[in-house]
């Protein structure tokens, strides 16, 4: 019996890969309604955006590449939908990765179509802007002068929207959807230097690092990984990719915990055998 157990423990890792694939796939075919209760940081961000007066612009910076879109795209979509449903205006841009340019545009333009919002009046998209910290610093002084043109090459000075939006002072909140260290830049400059509200949606891998900023109030709320996205989808009452993925996430975690327990049993048994010998 013990031999069989050890044999199982010594399985080729490709069997584990197969188990992961099966465990993640099967829940997608079983209709379920997993309970999703929004976290406190998600609720805080939702409440802040919800309380902004109609017409207030919010800025969303898409700082991720397709590597992390499974977690961050649903966040972006839920945030933009929330903003448009509250008649807030949305400004989008990408600073950290050129590849985020297309992702952010797709999210904002498709959501704008859903809510009948007009580009240049209700929303604007700058695309990828090289310069990173220079752009973040410059937008605090003058957005139009810093960014100059939108993703279509239209001058911001000729846009209806930017007649009354000069810098961060005219923006309700700046949200950084980040898969890297870009949030530090927003906290340092937008929040500390210009004293404007900042929030974030981050990949689960990085989320633990940003709790100090949450506790100190330097960021208002935070969306943490796929769960954060699913929580926001729940709050805006629009089930999306994140909610669809939570059942698979559930089963994958159960499997990993079982594997960790089995691994530890095997470790203890081996240790016991070794001490006997």
């Amino acid at each position: 019996m013990l031999k069989l157990f050890f044999k199982i423990m010594d399985l080729d890792r490709r069997w584990i890969f197969l188990m992961v694939a099966v465990i993640v796939t099967i829940p997608l075919f079983i209709p379920s309604n997993p309970p999703i209760v929004p976290d406190r940081p998600v609720q805080e961000l939702y409440n802040f955006i919800d309380a902004l007066p109609e017409g207030t612009p919010i800025m969303i910076c898409f700082d991720y590449s397709p590597d992390s879109l499974a977690e961050l795209n649903p966040m972006g979509r839920a945030l933009v939908r929330h903003a448009f449903s509250k008649n807030l205006r949305v400004i989008g841009l990408a600073l950290a990765w050129p590849a985020a340019s297309g992702l952010g545009l797709e999210i904002i333009s498709s959501s704008a179509e859903e809510y009948g919002k007009i580009e240049g009046v209700d929303w604007a998209y700058f695309g990828y802007k090289i310069g990173y910290s220079q752009i973040v610093i410059g937008m605090g002084k003058n957005i139009a002068q810093t960014v100059q043109e939108d993703h279509k090459g239209l001058s911001l000075n000729n846009m209806e929207m930017f007649k009354e939006i000069k810098n961060y002072d005219d923006i309700g909140i700046v949200i950084d959807l980040a898969a890297g260290g870009s949030l530090g830049l927003f906290v340092t400059y937008v929040n500390t230097m210009y004293n404007r509200p900042v929030s974030t949606g981050v990949t689960a891998v990085m989320a633990a690092d940003y709790y100090p900023y949450l506790q100190s109030g330097q960021i208002i709320g935070m969306l943490n990984g796929l769960k954060g996205a699913a929580d926001y989808e729940k709050l805006v009452n629009r089930k999306g990719l994140a909610t669809r993925g939570m059942a698979s996430q559930n089963w994958a975690h159960i499997m990993i915990i079982i594997l960790i327990v089995l691994g530890n049993i095997s470790f203890l048994l081996t240790k016991k055998q070794q001490s006997k010998q």
Binding site: A207, L226, K227, Q249
Partner: peptide, 14 residues
């Protein structure tokens, strides 16, 4: 959280 993040990426492709 890292485990969670990695699984999420796979879910997107699945």
């Amino acid at each position: 959280l890292t485990v969670m993040g990695r699984i999420s990426l796979l879910i997107g492709r699945v």
